[in-house]
Amino acid sequence: MTFVIHGATGAQGAPLAALLAAANKPVVAIARDAGAAVDNARVMVADYSSVRQLTEVYSGADGVFVHLPLGAEDDRRTYARNIVAAVRAARPARVVFSTSGAVVDAPGNVLQEQQDSAVSTLMRGLEDSGVSHVVIAPRMFLENLLLPPVIDAVGEEGALRYPLAVGFAVSWASHLDVADTAAALFEQPDITGVVSVGQYPAITGPDLAEAFSARRGRDVAYEAIDPALFGESIAPLIGAGAAAGVAGLYQTLATLPDNTISPERSAQKLLGLVPRTVEQWLADIGM
């Protein structure tokens, strides 16, 4: 029984690789660098641009966890097609795909992925492949709050500044929650379609600040900031182009009433998995 993990050295893949390894399940970590090291995992080199390499690592796998890397959308569409081609050729027993926050379960929502997007391309391709698969759909990651401009202000000024209105509710989830969900879905092939991951009922900025206050033992206040200002603050970290895209996302969110999952297709209902509270998440990551 072998589980292939994309991004096993990254934010989403690493927690899942560690969780599976802790359960004594053989893990294959996909890397671009043959010298990459992942604890308790065998590293195999494969690039999203190579169907041949992907097919080789998928062959014989009991499970494949995949998510699309950041980058130009044309490149991501190519990667999606290549993943599908490799799945068709290798026929792994199960594929679990995380949308990484892309909205795929809210038709009519302005954020719903377009039919020609990379995420939609991969979802359609997996559905047409005939291989057992499921889609994990988180909305917004708690790890966003660890960006230096955000977390530094929490520690230095007691201010949690984020580009969401004070009353805007979000179904936050952590990468650890995605890992828990993916591991459970590998074991339950009867569950297909989209599984939403995130807190429900959703919580607001002041709720986040309250959790930080409780964890740190000092008052932390929430402050809504302008998305453009937030984009400027993270530009040195991720580049001006990517930062502008992030700012645009939050500007769009400002036109919506909330960003929440639907309970009908949630991990809570389908798997009995309750996402971590913010305070639990902070404890788990040692913050």
Rank of each mutant, 00 (worst) to 15 (best):
V64W: 02
P92D: 03
M44H: 07
S174P: 02
P149Y: 00
M140Q: 14
V103M: 02
A8L: 08
A89N: 09
W172G: 01
A18Q: 09
G108L: 06
M123C: 07
V104N: 01
L249M: 12
V84A: 04
P257C: 14
A211C: 07
A202P: 03
P189T: 15
V27I: 10
G35D: 10
L229H: 15
S59M: 06
N40H: 12
R91G: 02
N82C: 05
H6D: 13
P148H: 01
V84G: 06
R42K: 10
A72N: 09
T192A: 14
S266M: 09
P275T: 04
V135C: 13
P227N: 00
A72V: 13
A22T: 07
V150Y: 08
R265P: 05
P163M: 09
A21P: 00
Y48W: 13
V4E: 03
P26H: 08
D226K: 08
G71P: 05
Q12G: 00
G241Y: 09
V95D: 03
G7H: 01
D116N: 11
I203E: 03
A224I: 01
M1S: 13
R81P: 09
R218W: 08
R124H: 11
V51C: 09
A89Q: 09
D39R: 08
S233D: 12
A184N: 15
T192V: 00
I238L: 11
L111E: 04
L237D: 05
A242N: 03
A90T: 15
M44E: 15
L237I: 13
Q112A: 14
L145F: 01
Q268N: 07
G101M: 10
A41L: 04
F65L: 15
D284V: 12
L164M: 02
P138S: 12
S262T: 06
V27E: 09
R94T: 13
M140H: 13
L273W: 14
L126T: 15
H175N: 14
V194F: 02
R218N: 06
T255L: 01
D116Y: 12
F65R: 07
S100K: 08
R52F: 11
H67N: 15
V28N: 05
